[in-house]
Amino acid sequence: MGFLSRTMTVVWKDLMVEFRAKEMLLSVLVFALMVLVVFGFAFNPVEHDLSDIFAGIMWVAYLFAGTLGLNRSFMSERVNDALQGLVISPIDRSSIFLGKFMSNFLFMIAVELVLTPVSIILLKYPFHKGALLLGAALLLGTFGFAAIGTFLAALASNTRASEVLLPVLIFPLLAPVIIAVVRVTDAILGGDVSGVMPAFRFLAAYDVIFLAIPFLLFEYMLEN
């Protein structure tokens, strides 16, 4: 069996676990929804036009929800020391990382597919065009988040305070993605696509770098 098919085995397992514990996906979705509602109360979309800050609100909701999802992804590996079961198997350590990354990425995308239309309706955003570009921005931003997030979640799961530590680690390191993706989402929604390509290139570069480095380092992180 090749590298890729073993990676897919890990993905398959994660998605199965996810599917069995539906309350996980649901609780993350509901949490993101709550964040949107809180923003609604705080900024009052009835009296104010929230178009200027809509992209920011949307990403805050996704990133908070995503952090919750990442924590949970490695918590399920801690029960019965299940991650050790992967470590004793002959598969490449980096394919464990890649598999966990892919399942986290897919999980986030599923959450965003539900939440994007919901947030557009909820915050009364006048959405007309640019769905394709918006999708590209979501993919690129989520990719970077899942790449560095999977690595940091694996690290944080070995600490006493992992639920608190993960956000503390993730948000500063993710600052470039947050800045770029909110900016580009805002531009796309506003119909101004002139600055989109440089931002996409920047995001793509970040994604590649922060997939590659954890990929190389992961081997060292798994040893006892």
Partner: peptide, 19 residues
């Protein structure tokens, strides 16, 4: 924080090095 809260001596050191 990670250096202070990670479990196991060697594991802590490796995790911190990754960071």
């Amino acid at each position: 924080f990670t250096q202070m809260t990670a479990e196991g001596d060697e594991k802590r050191a490796r995790i911190a090095a990754g960071l």
